[in-house]
Simulated scan of single mutants.
Amino acid sequence: MTIGLNKTVVLFGGSGFLGRYVARALARRGHRIRVACRRPDLAYHLQIAGNMGQIQPIQANLRYRWSIDRAVEDADHVVNLVGILAESGRQSFDAVQHFGAKAVAEAARGVGAGLTQMSAIGADPHSESAYGRTKAAGEAAVLDTIPDATILRPSIVFGAEDQFFNRFAEMSRFSPVLPLIGGGKTRYQPVFVGDVAEAVAGAVEGKVPGGRIYELGGPEVLTFRQMMEEMLRVVDHKRGFVSIPFGAASTMARAMRFLPGAPLTEDQVALLKVDNVVSDEAKAEGRTLEAFDRMPRSLDAILPTYLIRFRPQGQFTRPQTHAGGLDAENQDGVV
């Protein structure tokens, strides 16, 4: 274990997909991590990522300010990873991504701690999506409260526990076709979860200037369809695609809104209408993953390490050259 600056870092949302990687990245640097989440029992598994007592799960809820203040006591830095893709009960976009982010920033300011806020490339005050609007409102509230806070906006994040490639790979085992909302033309810049976690750790240690918004993307820009084709190549399945116009997708989502765990919401359909890639402005100003001295890893390098279990015979399947991936003339996936 590398002993670094030994900061006390409070990690809100640390029990989630990205959180476990951030906790490991911080533990490797010798920091003490307090994982603040609604269900501390769901974060106990993180304790083995550090030395004895280095990672401590505690209870906190962004809807209750007193629990936030308690969580950040004596903290040197606060990281807020909390976000939702669909509303549920009192967990609304406003409550979690706007007012929750503001409350964390105010609590961090109260103890003199630095702040790193996880946002998303889809953050836009004029977005058709409530997700995008509240992410942007959260960013504004954070920077208004702590002007030198660091904001990170990743594109779609992939890794062993993701709910994107794993979900569609599972679907490809049983369904002869995969859905392409809006024809699958929306562009993404998928970024590996480990690279995002290293960027968070770099922000905690002050490796980049604060008061800026950094956009994190991988080395490839791919359409939704191309990502599905790459996934199918990795899992060695041949499947067709069915294009679903945005209007029809919204109608379907509206019909499913009362179902528990609905697979699609109207808000998500709205998000799918807009490209999710690193902006030219961020590239020109050096506000990208490269600012953290990271060379982003590609889908081709990472997907086989965890999607192999979806192949017909698992790791014993001999992959075919053309199982639904990108064609040879377009291996970079640029539209």
Rank of each mutant, 00 (worst) to 15 (best):
A60V: 08
T305S: 13
T116D: 03
G218L: 00
P154G: 07
V79Q: 00
D74S: 08
R287A: 11
D327P: 15
W66L: 10
F99A: 05
G4P: 13
P179T: 09
F246P: 08
T317N: 08
P147M: 04
L272F: 11
D69E: 15
A248Y: 04
M252V: 15
V78D: 04
I244V: 15
R28C: 09
I181P: 02
R318W: 13
V274R: 15
R212D: 13
A103I: 06
M231A: 06
V208R: 10
V278L: 07
Y306G: 03
T223D: 03
P209I: 10
L271W: 00
L232R: 06
G286V: 13
I121W: 09
G218T: 03
D267T: 08
L178A: 02
G30H: 06
M171S: 11
T317M: 04
D293P: 10
D144P: 05
L5F: 06
L180W: 02
S279E: 14
I3E: 13
G112P: 03
V111D: 11
A141K: 07
R212C: 09
K273A: 09
A284W: 01
T321H: 08
D74M: 02
D332Q: 09
A169D: 10
Q313K: 14
T2D: 10
S298G: 05
L115W: 05
N276R: 13
H77V: 06
T288N: 00
A60E: 10
I213V: 15
V72A: 07
N6W: 02
G14K: 02
I244C: 10
D300S: 14
L143F: 05
H237F: 06
S127N: 09
A253K: 03
T305C: 07
A105G: 06
Q315V: 11
K185T: 15
K135C: 02
R233A: 13
D41S: 11
E281K: 15
T265E: 05
F192I: 00
L62N: 03
T305F: 05
L178E: 03
P40V: 14
D94N: 06
G194A: 01
S298K: 01
M52A: 13
S129N: 00
V335F: 12
F224C: 01
P245C: 12
N166M: 13
Q226C: 09
V35Y: 06
R20L: 03
G314A: 05
L42S: 14
T8C: 00
S172Q: 08
A328P: 12
R90F: 07
F174K: 02
A107R: 04
E215Q: 12
A108D: 09
L180E: 07
D332S: 10
N80A: 07
D280K: 09
A199M: 07
R20I: 05
F224E: 05
S67H: 01
D162A: 10
G218N: 02
L5R: 15
Q56E: 14
D267L: 05
V204T: 06
A23T: 11
N6L: 12
T321Q: 08
P179M: 08
G286R: 05
A291C: 09
Q47F: 06
E139D: 14
A284I: 09
V278Y: 04
R29F: 07
